[in-house]
Design a protein around this nucleic acid. Sequence first.
RNA 1: GCCGCGGUAGCUCAGUGGUAGAGCACUGGUCUGAAAAACCAGGUGUCGUUGGUUCGAUCCCAACCCGCGGCA
Length: 326
Amino acid sequence: MFSSFDKPIVITGANASGKTAIALRIAKEIGAEIISADSRQIYKHLSAGTSKPAGRWINKENPVYIVDSIPYHLVDFIDPIETYNVAKYIYDFKNCLLKIKTRKFIICGGTGFYINSIFNPLDPMPESNKHIRNQLREYLDKYGKEKLHEKLKELDPVSAKKIHPNNVHRVIRAIEVSILTSKPYSSLISNNIFNPKSYSNAFFVFIKWSRQLLSKRIKQRTKEVFNHWEREIKDMITNGYPIDCPGLKSLGYPIMIDYIENKISRDKAIELIVKESMDYAKRQNTWFSRYESTKIEINEEKEFDIDSIANNIISRYEISCNNSNK
RNA sequence: GCCGCGGUAGCUCAGUGGUAGAGCACUGGUCUGAAAAACCAGGUGUCGUUGGUUCGAUCCCAACCCGCGGCA
């Protein structure tokens, strides 16, 4: 997939771990463009709450989002009213590669599933079907989770064993695919979606903060963007976006909406957002620790020095490129 | 000083004469078109201290310590 490029650098880490700043610094140094792997920064109008890097669109014919003079792809291009998913991301990612003018690029983001799917392609399968999902939802409301799970057991006992009855999302998806293809969902899955070999096509970096420091940083960041975030949501509502549209379901947004509707105080909103962000950071760290990667650990504030981290990554990256050329 | 109430997990508390539990917090994990989603699993402990009664006390009794309230 990357044959016309040098080995890409992949910068992963939890939210607020400083991925973007580091990626930009490296991009400038080595002459690379950046591709985002973030399921929320794709949305237009969602900026404060998603920490989307501030940039501007140039070139009307062939628009490019520029952040600090670096082309930054796959952000700020989907309307918040639209749902998005991995398959769309992979499609957009491939198209994006055609637009990149440098030999090097950096993948930067916190959506592990998207990053993984770049290196381990999804098995061919039908996309989601609104009609079937609605039917299954109705069935669920009427008969409950257990009955829905039994339905899956009839169609695909293997998946039924793997998917917990409470995990309604996955149960529905498995039934949906089984119905659409007339084959058990499990029979379409190749089971090597986490093949470690495929990651050697790239240089993975994992920025891992100590929990305490990250929590402090998230709190600070939440306070800093709070007013801007509030304004952002109010503007969207004024412009007719329903409060339950896909974009506004992003982490923290429903809490901000409760605050705007005077259901909770400002302090309470900040507290809840920090908590949810930390829960999410935990899941991200679990995901990223499965990759073999160059780990940058930050246990003290002073260790977060963007220049020295970037230089450290670049030198290790160059060594890794030389080794794989031999 | 006296009277009353309380002291059990990080927090809020429940509970029992046979050495403990709930919620939240916390920790670990799963992941194939909703992934900032949706799920799963797991503990946390001198039961305030010291004695006494008892085969056995976190539980009953006493003293003491600490907190809260009331009366002086």
